[in-house]
């Protein structure tokens, strides 16, 4: 009989729980920039491969000081705001109707599924014929691009609204519109807002596409022109502006979520 052998139970938990480390993202960003700057200065990265970060900053400074930054930014933001507003409003309304009515759902879900994967850029020439080469086609492209993901996110969110809450509303004699306004819409808001993050990111991507046709000013037009001229400094300055726009949109939605969804556990 071997004597009773005592040993601690080995620890098997731990891991699988990454935590945020402050400044790590910034450090990666900064070291990439420093590496590029050093590489372009010392010459092992040719002027053809990457622009010098300091030159990009200089280009950005010129954009700012000549006032061209806002000349490009204002039309782009207008297009994004108008196009996305149309797309998101129609998308949320359609999504709610799909979420609530059997006929609308059966009729429109296949249509939306068919529209979703269409590269909206491919339809740009068509939009030019339908809506004109000026702002109309640009609004339409961004609206269309933001519409489909919003619809899908919205009706998914409406489906996820707790049905007992709706029964509760009915049991208190609330009317249809009151139930939609006071129960369905707020209940679907988390899903709608997270869908909005995706929709608006798509909107920013489509901004460049929308400005391919007939745009004299705009961040997208600026980037496309820089690409055509193989002007890497301007190209990157434009890309940085788009990235900043993306971060801005994400931050704004984050703030809205914080305000509107503080009831979430």
């Amino acid at each position: 009989m071997p004597e009773t052998h005592a040993q601690p139970v080995p620890f098997r938990g731990g891991g699988f729980r990454p935590v945020a480390i402050r400044g790590a993202g910034l450090a990666v960003f900064a070291s990439l920039l420093i590496l590029t700057e050093w590489g372009t200065r010392s010459g092992w990265i040719s002027a053809l491969t990457l622009p010098r970060p300091s030159d990009v900053v200089k280009t950005f400074g010129e954009l700012w000081s000549t006032g061209m930054l806002f000349k490009h930014l204002v039309p782009s933001l207008t297009r994004l705001v108008v196009g996305a507003s149309i797309g998101v409003t129609l998308g949320v309304s359609t999504g709610i109707l799909i979420g609530l009515f059997s006929y609308v759902r059966s009729g429109l879900v296949p249509l939306v599924a068919a529209l979703f994967p269409i590269p909206k850029i491919a339809l740009l020439p068509l939009f030019v014929i339908w809506f004109g080469i000026d702002e109309g086609s640009k609004y339409a492209l961004i609206a269309f691009g933001t519409f489909t993901p919003t619809v899908v996110a919205t009706y998914g969110a409406v489906d996820n609204v707790d049905r007992t809450l709706i029964r509760m509303g009915q049991s208190f004699g609330m009317g249809w519109f009151a139930i939609v306004r006071k129960i369905v819409l707020p209940g679907a808001m988390p899903g709608i807002l997270s869908g909005l993050r995706i929709s608006l990111a798509i909107g920013i991507i489509l901004l460049v596409a929308a400005e391919m046709l007939g745009a004299e000013y705009g961040i997208g037009a600026y980037i496309l022109e820089a690409g055509a001229l193989y002007d890497l400094e301007r190209l990157f300055a434009g890309v940085v502006i788009l990235s900043a726009l993306g971060i801005l949109v994400s931050t704004v939605i984050g703030a809205i979520e914080k305000r509107l969804l503080n009831w979430r556990t």
């Binding site: 029964r167 509760m168 049991s171 208190f172 209940g187 969804l261 009831w263």
Partner: peptide, 13 residues
């Protein structure tokens, strides 16, 4: 006729 539900059915917002 007014209900009280098992899972409370409170609007969380």
């Amino acid at each position: 006729l007014t209900y009280v539900f098992q899972d409370f059915a409170l609007l969380p917002w």
